[in-house]
Design a protein around this nucleic acid. Sequence first.
DNA 1: ACAAAAGTGTTGAGCGTACACCCATGG
DNA 2: CCATGGGTGTACGCTCAACACTTTTGT
Lengths: 235, 235
Amino acid sequence: VVYTSEYPIVYVAVDVVVLTVRDRMLQALVVERGGEPYLGRLALPGGFVGPDEDLERAAVRELKEETDVSTGSVRLEQLASYGAPDRDPRQRVVSVAWLAVLPHGPEPKGGSDAAAAHWHPVDWLSRRGRLAFDHRRILRDGVDRARSKLEYTDIATAFVDPEFTIAELREVYEVMWAEPLDPGNFHRKVTGTDGFVVRTGRFRRPARGRPAELFRAGREQLSPPLTRRSLAPGR
Amino acid sequence: VVYTSEYPIVYVAVDVVVLTVRDRMLQALVVERGGEPYLGRLALPGGFVGPDEDLERAAVRELKEETDVSTGSVRLEQLASYGAPDRDPRQRVVSVAWLAVLPHGPEPKGGSDAAAAHWHPVDWLSRRGRLAFDHRRILRDGVDRARSKLEYTDIATAFVDPEFTIAELREVYEVMWAEPLDPGNFHRKVTGTDGFVVRTGRFRRPARGRPAELFRAGREQLSPPLTRRSLAPGR
DNA sequence: ACAAAAGTGTTGAGCGTACACCCATGG
DNA sequence: CCATGGGTGTACGCTCAACACTTTTGT
């Protein structure tokens, strides 16, 4: 089938910045490109939008094709669109980028594929990792967005399991902001911020020490926010 | 000329939410549609992206075609992209929306055109104004963005002239948040927030009362932010 | 002199940082 | 018993909302 248009053709794609915390590092999901251009380079998962496909649905589909994550546990949010005329050497492509946050970095699908997806630390990707297209920029924008949303939304709860301890939540903030937080003050602040977390009454036994209470995520917008200034001041 | 593609064709457009404060009201620039679909309805200024045109450049071009504003005094920021398959009844169109903020709502160009642009209060547009396509949603997203950016950026300075008084800046906040602010505390907060505003040493005489010092905009990011909570609490 | 708007002083309340301390478990 | 991590108590310092007050103009 050949499609025709009286206007110049612009392709529309989606790319997804998929973030997780593994081994106390912020990591992102990338695939190795199996074709030109940028053959063999790392790239964000993504692809073209289907003819009658909603943009968000396309992002979900691309994400599912790379991981085994169930849709329910993914939080997808639109980041921005990237449309520099020369961002793809083949033809004009405008890409709508999305941010997804997963708990615990599940193993990606089909590890034997040529285009297998892998987790890599964001620090490494943005320094030594030579990403295809403008994906380094997109990754940076996604990380910046997640980092700032920690303050005024419950996005941190998307990095942990549905039931989590306050210490697990604290680890997310510590990794994202790359600084240690006072455990006591963090606990008080999180449990004291209106509907941020909800007690379950159940507990989990850590390797050592007193059992920690399990919580579930509450409302999405935090007020007052958990400012970085207030959680990680001088030190 | 006819262009061909082996993939389904998606058109890429830009739409611009242009905001200003006039007559103590937040107003937006809209055009009356001169063709189908939505003939005669109000719509955000916008149009298709040129074949080798950057997205931001397309937004600037559309804005210039409707107003006489010089590029320098416009602040453009990407809002989001809208791509529901049925958002345009003719064909698949993905629109990249932008936010622009102007001082004082200059008169739009070519007031005699059928597709003349006009300022309308945002309140009216979002209630009684029946906007074309999903532009009501885009307008709301743009207003929400501007409103929240008042707290942690200097976006308010884009609503006033390059040299402005603190009272003019306060009017922007009062209109955007729809609540009166304490003049004294506002003055202290703004002048005390590190590089937000810079004294010029010059003054302006108001109709009545003591002359007000003129300031210029300083750095873009505010720290600490001017929180709405702290500026407009109980009352 | 008075009204009006700009701008400064002041104070009590509340928040948050730092750190001490207690709690509950495993070894 | 000790070590370890979970969680609470507490006090000093800082911010800031409220509002009184001073400054500088036009009429």
